[in-house]
Nucleic acid binder design. Structure first.
Lengths: 112, 112
DNA sequence: AAATTGCACAACCAATTAATTGCATTATAT
DNA sequence: ATATAATGCAATTAATTGGTTGTGCAATTT
């Protein structure tokens, strides 16, 4: 059982669940109403998300309200950060290339 | 065959490959040297990444240089944006709560 | 107290995955 | 021309996944 956040968000149903409970806490039944699978299947997804520490849960009588643990989501952002660094860097490089080209053009124009 | 970027990054080996070729273009053999699996296994991962449009490739003789298509990586960032919006919002809420508390305290202090 | 509701867990099953081994193909070196 | 190197593709296999149905348990409702 690999069980990390990247595997958690690999499944489209789980991503949809994450989207739902990011906004407000919901019970498994309420979540299941948004999909055309069984409540048990949703329960399984919730267990996986839970094992990845992506869920906060609050028991209220026989109902359990699940909500997204937003802090855990930041781990994805942290992984992405290294690539963001690269693409912003490339963008800057492109920028300076364009600037150089523009200067060249300006020089040529001024000599015409 | 689901084949989206989230499924692509679910596999730890693929994430490692992505990390490698983000910096510089590499051939399958060169990539495979970083792992203790067969070259064919890496080739398969590359195909999956390619099907997700995560790769740029450049043929040089019999070698193929693969590099990461950074723009595609931004799709993950775009998906994350909705949650970022929420967590920044929560942070602001917390901020204002703290501010309110502080004001209350100040008031109390001033009355003492 | 009995029926119902909300939930988790277990057993099972089909589909998918990631890996391996064994080719085939094209480009380079001898 | 022939051997070798770099790569992709196909078949096979074991493990994992995502789903289903069935069961049990605790909290409500009647």
């Amino acid at each position: 059982m690999r069980r990390d956040i990247f595997q958690a968000i690999a499944d489209p149903t789980r991503r949809a669940i994450i989207g739902l409970i990011a906004v407000q806490a919901m019970t498994p039944n309420a979540i299941a109403e948004h999909f055309n699978t069984s409540r048990q299947a949703i329960s399984k997804h919730l267990r996986i998300l839970s094992e990845c520490e992506l869920l906060q849960q609050e028991q209220k009588g026989r109902e359990i309200y699940y909500q997204l643990e937003l802090n855990k989501m930041k781990e994805i952002d942290q992984w992405l950060a290294q690539f963001k660094a690269i693409w912003e860097n490339r963008f800057n490089e492109l920028d300076s290339i364009l600037a150089t080209l523009k200067n060249k053009t300006d020089e040529n124009e001024s000599t015409v």
